[in-house]
Design a binder for these strands. Structure first.
Lengths: 153, 153
DNA sequence: TAAGATTGAATATTCAATCTTG
DNA sequence: CAAGATTGAATATTCAATCTTA
């Protein structure tokens, strides 16, 4: 019986995360020409209810500072995949939205990306394992955000 | 029964990873003044059998390109935490080793870091959950490495 | 005054090229 | 010529300061 199997689980999470992400990123770049970060922006826009996100929301989603996000979006806009739209209700705010070209690029890339996740990750798990992982990891996230969530079991 | 619980597990892994890492990084910086990347270098050196690592091994561990690693180590060396040592057996190679000051910094930081992992992650898991996660994630990593994925970097 | 977004200056990272040794 | 490490030039990211609007 290993001494600290829970710490081993943490390290396995780190290893699996970087191993899978690395491959997904290079496949995305290789097969669609889209940097994974650009895809990530399109994905978040796609999943937002209104199809648009504020600059600072996007910054949080893509894990960049606000200035970096401003310039990141500059480049993606230059490439024609997104546009900036002023918020009519708040003169300070700027929305980012996908262009038709952006939606097309996303539609091309998404199936590839999902296939990668399936091949590298989900196909290796049983439903039971996934259920256990999901519940445990949700507890972890709730704990981090809430400061101190429920203890296990 | 959710339709794609295994995909949900993947997304939970992404979320948990970034949530926990974020807090660990800012706690490390806050409480020890050590950037998390520096700690990571010291950790890998600490865990290596011979107490030393080649430049390119370190590059792989810390997920940076080789040139970036060269400059990264420049800064940590400047700060006095590591040294460069020529490989006696291969004139092209350079080893990185911890200085006494580096070992002291690591000794101060490690307990804090481990406490953070425990509080944010391992304390939220049961041993049973950890065991399931560990086994499943190892299978994922083995699949990525052994599978048909291209080599990263 | 504060919040949202941007800009300027300093620092870091990357790709390509170079230097040295095997 | 190939492998390990480093350097130069271009690009990206950060922190602090600025500008605009609430």
């Amino acid at each position: 019986m290993p001494k600290d199997i829970r710490l081993d689980a943490w390290r396995a999470l780190l290893t699996a995360h970087s191993a899978v992400i690395d491959v997904l990123a290079s496949e995305m770049e290789q097969e669609t020409g889209l940097p994974i970060g650009w895809y990530d922006v399109l994905l978040h826009l796609h999943e937002s209810d209104s199809g648009r996100l504020r600059m600072h929301e996007l910054a949080e989603s893509v894990l960049l500072s606000r200035p970096a996000t401003t310039r990141f979006i500059d480049r993606i806009q230059q490439a024609g995949l997104v546009d900036r739209v002023a918020d009519p209700d708040d003169g300070r705010g700027t929305f980012v939205v996908m262009t038709a070209e952006g939606r097309a690029a996303f539609a091309r890339a998404a199936p590839l990306h999902l296939a990668g996740i399936r091949r590298l990750f989900t196909d290796r798990l049983t439903d039971g394992e996934a259920e256990v992982m999901l519940e445990a990891l949700r507890r972890v996230v709730d704990g981090v955000r809430g400061g101190s969530g429920p203890d296990p079991r």
